[in-house]
Design a protein around this nucleic acid. Structure first.
Lengths: 195, 195
DNA sequence: AGCGTTGTGTACCGAGAGGTAAATAATAGC
DNA sequence: GCTATTATTTACCTCTCGGTACACAACGCT
């Protein structure tokens, strides 16, 4: 349809490959040769299609959130707050221990601490993490008003606890924890659920 | 005492400054100019005193573990397993939200994901994190045998849960969570304690 | 004082980083 | 077939990276 020479690679597939590299090595640890090699293209094609390294990373964030981490949105639609968290944690565990994925959570490890140059992307992934917590809080506020959660429950505190465990299991996965081990962590963490 | 010209800077103080830089920017994000500027020395002095960037980082790990994170060792000496965890989490929260320190945990964020060149240091900090979990497991094994923890308790699972929450609050601190907020997370997390 | 030893300062190195210029190749529309 | 448009390729750019050579300064020792 568009004029000009057609691009010879699948742009979504290339973005997926780039995402995996950022996921495994982090924003700063992923070099241009790392990226282009994994994507199967050379540098000018990358720049023509995605802008630059930072723009590519930001597109990778979106792809991760909307693709690999789509269980988050599904979890938030569960009918009870408890089911929301069970599905969130289970889905996260499956994602971060998935055999086809790098170990750990992209949003946690791709840019947790970095140099000044990368501060923009660091803030962006931090914003995404904080946003998850905010979504949980809103969901728990609704649950309290519906009587699904006990009246005394503080939605913000509970959301922060759920986010904390989520981020914690991400680090555990990076350290080699297995799916089963993390599912037992999930069961333990669930014992703190308000009743 | 030693022959030759005396060094003009305090080596421990310089190491502390370097540690802070690695803590804030991560191993890869900390450049040599960043380090030398913070340490108040120039490059050849750094190399003469510490070897190279990686050796400096490894010395910074030791200094962090033995200095800033000394509450871990103290916590493990508490008389009950519950007290161990309370002190571990409280001490960690104070450390990672301390006004004089970078936000977050050095062992979590200094080298969580990085390029191939930094894989050695990544594995080293991972090893330190795993070691904490192992120490907790041993402590909980003792607690079970002493009747301090219920007989059905799995020390490995409980240690993994405690480590998970520890790492989770580290990420939360990096995202700006306050001391009070994290202490409420700690209280919630403690509700999962076996009884 | 002279010497060996060690630290400091300046100036430099090769390598790799991220990013681009310019020529060529492949398409659509006329 | 010609032109406009877009993608690919090769070769290059500048800048910064981690690391070091070398001359000089400050000490202990005899």
């Amino acid at each position: 349809m568009p004029a000009g020479r057609p691009r010879e690679f699948d742009i979504d597939q290339a973005l997926d490959s780039a995402l995996k590299v950022f996921w495994r090595k982090g924003y700063e640890g992923a070099s241009l040769p790392d990226l282009t090699k994994a994507m199967g293209i050379n540098r000018p094609s990358l720049y023509a299609a995605f802008g630059n390294k930072e723009a590519l990373f930001r597109k990778a964030i979106d792809r991760y959130v909307e693709g690999h981490a789509s269980h988050v949105r599904e979890a938030l639609r569960e009918p009870t707050a408890r089911a929301v968290v069970q599905r969130l944690w289970s889905g996260s565990i499956d994602l971060i221990t998935g055999p086809r994925n790098p170990r750990g959570c992209f949003l946690v490890q791709a840019a947790l601490a970095c140099g000044d140059e990368a501060d923009g992307v660091r803030r962006e992934v931090a914003r995404r993490r904080v946003r998850l917590e905010a979504r949980l809080r809103e969901r728990f506020e609704r649950a309290v008003s519906e009587g699904d959660l006990p009246a005394g429950t503080d939605p913000a505190d509970l959301a922060r606890y759920v986010a904390t465990v989520s981020h914690g299991i991400a680090v555990q996965a990076a350290d080699g924890a297995t799916r089963d081990q993390l599912n037992r962590v999930r069961e333990t963490a669930m014992l703190a659920w308000p009743s």
